[in-house]
Design a protein around this nucleic acid. Structure first.
Lengths: 208, 208, 208, 208
DNA sequence: TATGAATGAGACTTCATTCAT
DNA sequence: AATGAATGAAGTCTCATTCAT
């Protein structure tokens, strides 16, 4: 087949183009999920033709995985870690929860897309799903470390159970806020969550 | 003598066909979500041509909504309600949580598809999403009633908060089990969840 | 993604549509080969939209294989077999060769496309190539039977060698005619070929 | 003291790059034909970016034509011409055929790609096809000269017919070997071919 | 002497949907 | 109560090619 030629216009700038593509993709994928994210839609939103997207990303799977990776980093920087480690365990746990809640309100794309990917079961697992589960495992371990530090009396199994409960509760509250909209006070719910986890940890540590 | 012709054993049976379509659709939609569920795939799985699906359902949106409705009913019947209302509040709450956990392990399609629909934001909201949020609201109210009965000292705001927390926690734990697979003991996690909610309710009721 | 609807027009007639698609495809594939045959080109030539082609054929590979099958049958019926088995071996062999030559001039698509497929080496072999090699093996065996009948003195190895030579020579002469166009007298060349094969067979049979 | 910078060992070398591109292209085009040879595939195989290919070759057509030209030369050097012109005509013809057969087994790309190009009919004829037909015409004339020398009694028409038959037979046997793989003894088949052509020539020359 | 980046066209294929039978 | 056949839109991805650097 004979193909036609095409005129050039903009100055080539690979790095910026890649960012524009990711900016568009994170927005669409964060709202529509994997199947709902069409290359044509990303192309329309970022202004680059679809074929240019394939210069920067091997295929759609690669693009979604990159979206997950970058939005995780974006979210990580959005989480303001509490500067000094002062106060009672309850105060410190509550402060951390509030910070996480705020970051999820400000940059929800990462978790929203991640949860959609996590829930789907497709024949060939998207790489983005794997990436999400990996970074979520990192989060899990960080929380486990905090619990271990704050409650030295906890044994390993108890830490694991509480961490799982803490992460799962955060997921569920996040979903609730996504469904319920701005009327949901995610910070207050996270603080309640932190308190209940704290109380359970304290009790478990004491009953050892 | 002319004999009557062989009895047409498989006369067209609309009800059965509808069930076959829904059986196929709930399986696919429960795994792949809205966009991932193609009429062709449902057709292939149920054995009926695509055009027959359109005889039973107005369009894809209608089919997905019917899937949500039927899988909710399936799930409801799978939840064994505790027969008598006996025991301490903690015992009763824990027993209910365990029953719900078992039902979610046995019939996860409803909640799985529902959460996927709930997380997505698409220009024209699928009717299935609306249906899911409605039936989930029913669940919310039932839990609120139980909490009000068990803890008469709670005011309305506290009941609402605790109910929200209870439902969200259940969602999050369900997601964790879907991601983690059979190694996750959903019943144990739900029992822990029930206990924490119970403790919080008791404390709130007492401090009124 | 929301899809639009489409109006209907012609009376559905599956058998005729299938033939129209094959008619278009055999013409294009016979001239352009596998890669050169685009579904869009077949669609344009047969008047049916591309998506209709996929109702009748699973994919492009399936279409090309069907083209090979049908054009082989077309070619088979175009080969007028000599009615009576009379005359000397030379006369009979020459008459057969002339008939084959005429059929190849009239219906060259089968062999032309088949040879193109046969020459290509692609990672996943097209089914059409397999089909071509199978029907060609049938032809090989038929020729071997004729040689065995006409020259009982030939041993098996000699029959195999001569048959291979006969078929390969036919292929080469066909290619020459395709390249050289109408100025090439394919019938004359086939008659020469028949004579040389005949002489070789006679000599081999005698020297046993 | 400032020392001279490290010797740039791999200065850009246009000639070598051109060879690498052709090496990759001849392999792909020899297996996949014109349409099946994509610039991206050649780029991936030779390690140079696609745009570099366009620095060395005007367009794809130009590249394929260059492939034909170079692979023809490669093949020519692979044909060991019989040093002295000794022996009977049959011995000399047979020796030549064996040499050609060996060269085709060792360097089949030229003829394989050429035949694919020759068989295709596309709206705008690729230059590579023209080149192939030209060099093939050269081969035709050389064979004609040999036949004229060995059989002075042949008239021009007979030489032409026999040469055509000789070349076409070689093509057909080559195709057979390409399809049948290493189990086909191309040398033996070429020797048989040579003998039959020799016999026909001798008979024609005698019967003048 | 190259090449990173881009581009419109077009490749194959699946989509949701319709309609005559 | 059902279905064979069809349809235009849209899906993902590759194509040959260009041009500023």
């Amino acid at each position: 087949m004979t193909r036609a030629q095409a005129p050039r216009r903009k100055r080539a700038n690979g790095v910026e183009s890649r960012q524009r593509i990711l900016d568009a993709a994170v927005e669409i994928a964060g709202e529509r999920g994997y199947d709902g994210t069409s290359i044509a839609a990303v192309s329309a939103k970022c202004g680059l033709p679809a074929s240019s997207i394939y210069w920067h990303f091997k295929d759609k799977d690669d693009l979604i995985a990159a979206v997950i990776e970058r939005s995780f980093e974006t979210w990580l920087t959005a989480v303001e870690l509490p500067g000094d480690e002062v106060g009672t365990p309850l105060e410190r746990v509550t402060a951390m929860a509030a910070n996480v809640a705020k970051s999820l309100v400000d940059a929800p794309d990462f978790l929203r897309l991640g949860l959609m990917l996590a829930l789907e079961r497709r024949p060939t697992e998207p790489r983005g799903r794997t990436v999400f589960l990996q970074v979520r495992e990192i989060t899990h371990q960080k929380i486990a470390e905090v619990l271990t530090t704050l409650f030295p009396g906890l044994d390993e199994a108890a830490v694991h159970t509480l961490t799982t409960y803490a992460v799962a509760g955060a997921d569920g509250l996040f979903v609730h806020r996504e469904v319920g909209g701005e009327s949901v006070d995610l910070v207050a719910l996270f603080e309640l969550h932190a308190q209940l986890v704290h109380d359970a940890a304290a009790r478990m540590a004491a009953s050892r």
